[in-house]
Amino acid sequence: MIEVILKKGKEKAVLHKHPWVFSGAVERVIGKPENGDIVRLVDAKGQFMAYGFYNDQSRVALRLLEWDENVAIDEQWFRGKVAEAVESRQKDILVDGVTNTCRLIFSESDYLPGLIVDKYADHLAVQVLTSGIEKNLAVIIDELQKLLNPASIFDKSDASSRTHEGLDTKNIVLAGIHPPERVEVKENGITYNINIAEGQKSGFYCDQRENRKILAAYAKGKKVLDCFSYTGGFTLNSLQNGAASVSSVDSSVLAVETLKENISLNKFDTTKVTAIPSDVNKQLRKFREEGELFDIVILDPPKYAPSRSALDKASRAYKDLNRLGMLLLNKGGLLATFSCSGAMDMETFKQVLAWAALDAGKQVQFIYQFCQPEDHPVRSSFPEGEYLKGLLCRVF
Rank of each mutant, 00 (worst) to 15 (best):
A72R: 15
D375K: 07
V60R: 07
K362V: 07
N281G: 08
I2C: 04
Y120C: 10
T169I: 12
L104M: 12
K223N: 12
S152D: 01
V273S: 04
G333I: 11
G31D: 01
K170H: 15
L391M: 05
R379P: 01
P150E: 00
H16R: 13
I140V: 09
E134M: 09
I190Y: 04
F154T: 00
M344P: 05
S341V: 04
I5M: 08
K201Y: 06
E384Y: 09
A83Y: 06
K45V: 09
A243Q: 03
D279Q: 13
I367L: 06
F366S: 08
I367W: 09
K272V: 02
L115P: 14
D155L: 00
I93C: 03
I133R: 09
S341W: 04
A305M: 06
T191K: 15
F53G: 11
Q365C: 12
D295H: 14
C393G: 04
G80P: 03
N281W: 14
G52D: 03
Q372F: 07
V364N: 10
N241S: 08
D269I: 00
L321G: 09
S229C: 10
T270R: 06
G9C: 05
K267R: 14
T348M: 14
T99W: 05
S381M: 01
D345Y: 13
E210F: 10
T169P: 05
K146H: 11
I263A: 00
L311V: 12
G46P: 03
L124N: 00
T101S: 13
N281S: 12
P277R: 02
G199L: 01
S202I: 03
S152I: 00
L391K: 08
L334N: 03
G52T: 01
S152Q: 00
W20E: 01
F349A: 02
A360E: 01
C102A: 10
S245Y: 09
V128W: 11
P277T: 06
A336P: 07
F228M: 10
G97P: 10
G9S: 02
E374H: 10
V4K: 02
F268R: 08
N136Q: 15
L137G: 08
H18Y: 11
